[in-house]
Write a protein that binds this DNA or RNA. Structure first.
Length: 501
RNA sequence: UCCUCGGUAGCUCAAUGGUAGAGCAUGCGGCUGUUAACCGCAGGGUUGUAGGUUCGAGUCCUACCCGGGGAGCCA
């Protein structure tokens, strides 16, 4: 341990001075008489140069022996990088090998999903994961700041619950001293009780869904933020959700430039996340889905996919012809390109299978059904920012939602759909306040009344209008980071068929 | 549960039914500013499993196992 060691993040401030660093060897490059050690300490990475002429034998052997992910202590002078402006490097004068790593499995090269997921505990060390998880941290801090600044009180709903609220098939059952209990699916109902006590509250906790779902949007364990506000109606709820999302994206853009760059995230779609978000009623959304405009949009998509596919196939053919009599270095580049083309062709093929189905399902969409994943994706393709869809058919929404006083078929629910096909990140609405109505709803959904007696009390003793929503943390981070899978947004994802490591 | 794509060297992937290959990683050698460094050499294989078709199977057929992402459901 060297308490005087400085953090790589702060290295700029030490330009011209001699400092000590401690961390792990991320990568090593060598030339005659020179080693370039890329050191990572969690806060960032820096290139450390070891010159054989300038160091004693011991330091040189450390550089020579150190392998990928070995732990190192390095001392040296902080100097500007000769080639990159605004970047510093360390000219090493002292080095100690703290721990020699042997055979680190994750090489600086491409790996498959399964291989990496089995080694998630090590995968976390890579630059891409570093960036995602730092953005996750930034998002979490923004969430707390946003609510705390507005006078919300953070309160936790229980994780163990006694009764099944929604379908038991999506609940994880555990043995609770001989009786069945469940891991929570939502803190919603308890959130309402807390809002009646403290006015404006938000929960921030883990949620569990035993859905047998294997898609890029699903985890069996994820974190949800659920604000619940007394004396809020649907419009106030939507206003809050809008401000909330704008704030999160704004903070990430301001504070995570390096991380977004490491992820290759396009900034334009994030920069256009400004108020107001388009608000469509369910009925308007259905109209849009069935419209010729949607058909055209999807047809354009199909056409451009076909074109890209044809161009790639032509390139592939060209490569196949020239590959035989190409120079070695060129052949290697062509091989890499060939693999890239194959991947993209797979994606295009899949999309060309999907989109015509989406086209058909959009055209044939019937009022009253809930939107499927593809319908949501199609809707968001029409806009450049998140959209809010409100006033859904009551039949497809939860029992506790308030009915629209102007149309009894509708519930005062709302969803926020993220752009770029990321889909639902928020679901919520205004809650029913009438005791008799709620009791009838519980019966109608085939739920046991006894389990909800405590909840009914909230309507017996000072029932007031109130509203709230739930934000899926991982889906939000996935969208902000521009990832193609939610599994990278949480340190140790739990999914269908995966509880290790 | 259904649909669909895949399983070849430690890793990522090639291979028109006809001699299983490349890059990376590893080891050795070279190179005084490298950026997934580069150059040279070397080792590394029961092509997921079990059957079948064929003169001949990584390639075709059947069943099963494992994985990817899509539907349903959802944040």
């Amino acid at each position: 341990m060297d308490r005087s060691a400085v953090s790589i993040e702060a290295l700029q401030e030490y330009a011209g001075t001699t400092v000590a660093l401690q961390g792990w060897l991320q990568n090593k490059r060598a030339s005659k008489g020179l080693y370039f050690l890329v050191l990572r300490d969690g806060s960032g990475t820096v290139q450390c140069v070891v010159s054989q002429k300038e160091v004693d034998h011991e330091v040189w052997s450390v550089a020579m022996e150190a392998t990928q992910e070995s732990a190192l202590w390095l001392k040296g002078t902080v100097v500007p990088h000769p080639r990159h402006q605004g970047v510093v490097e360390l000219h090493v004068t002292g080095a100690r090998l703290l721990s020699l790593a042997q055979g680190y499995p994750i090489t600086p090269k491409a790996h498959g999903v399964e291989f990496l997921m089995d080694r998630r505990h090590l995968w976390l060390r890579s630059r891409r994961q570093w960036a995602v998880l730092r953005i996750r941290n930034r998002v979490i801090m923004s969430i707390h700041e946003f609510y705390q600044e507005r006078g919300f009180v953070q309160m936790d709903a229980p994780i163990l619950t006694g009764s099944a609220v929604e379908g038991t098939s999506t609940l994880f059952e555990i043995d609770y001293f001989g009786s069945p209990a469940y891991l929570t699916q939502s803190g919603q109902l308890h959130g309402e009780a807390m809002a009646m006590a403290l006015g404006k509250i938000y929960t921030f906790g883990p949620t569990f869904r035993a859905e047998k779902s294997k898609t890029r949007r699903h985890l069996t364990e994820f974190w949800m933020i659920e604000p619940e506000m007394a004396f809020y109606d649907l419009d106030m709820n939507m206003d809050l959700a809008e401000d909330f999302i704008v704030r999160i994206v704004h903070d990430v853009l301001r504070d995570c430039e390096t991380e977004l760059e490491a992820l290759g995230r396009k900034l334009t779609p994030l920069q256009s996340v400004q108020k107001p978000f388009p608000r469509l009623s369910y009925s308007e959304a259905v109209d849009l889905l069935q419209s010729a405009k949607t058909q055209d949009l999807l047809q354009d998509r199909i056409d451009s996919m076909r074109q890209e596919g044809a161009a790639l196939k032509a390139e592939q053919e060209q490569i196949r012809k020239t590959l035989g009599h190409a120079k070695k270095w060129k052949r290697r580049r062509m091989d890499a390109r060939k693999i890239e083309i194959n991947h993209r062709l797979d994606e295009i093929e899949e999309e060309l299978r999907n989109v015509p189905q989406w086209q058909a399902s959009a055209a044939a969409f019937e009022w009253g059904r809930d939107f499927g994943g593809s319908d949501e994706t199609v809707l968001t393709w029409h806009f450049d920012r998140p959209i809010i869809i409100h006033r859904y058919p009551a039949a497809v929404k939860a029992f506790y939602m308030k009915r629209d006083p102007e149309d009894d078929r509708l519930a005062l629910g709302m969803d926020v759909l993220a752009p770029e096909g990321y889909g639902e990140i928020i679901g919520g609405g205004e809650r029913a306040t009438d005791l008799a109505f709620l009791q009838r709803q519980v019966d109608a959904h085939g739920l046991p009344r006894e389990a909800f007696e405590w909840y009914f009390d909230l309507r017996r003793y000072g029932s007031v209008p109130h509203a709230g929503f739930g934000l899926g943390l991982e889906r939000t981070v996935s969208w902000v980071c521009g990832l193609d899978h939610i599994r990278e947004t949480i340190p140790f994802p739990r999914m269908l068929g995966r509880v290790y490591p």
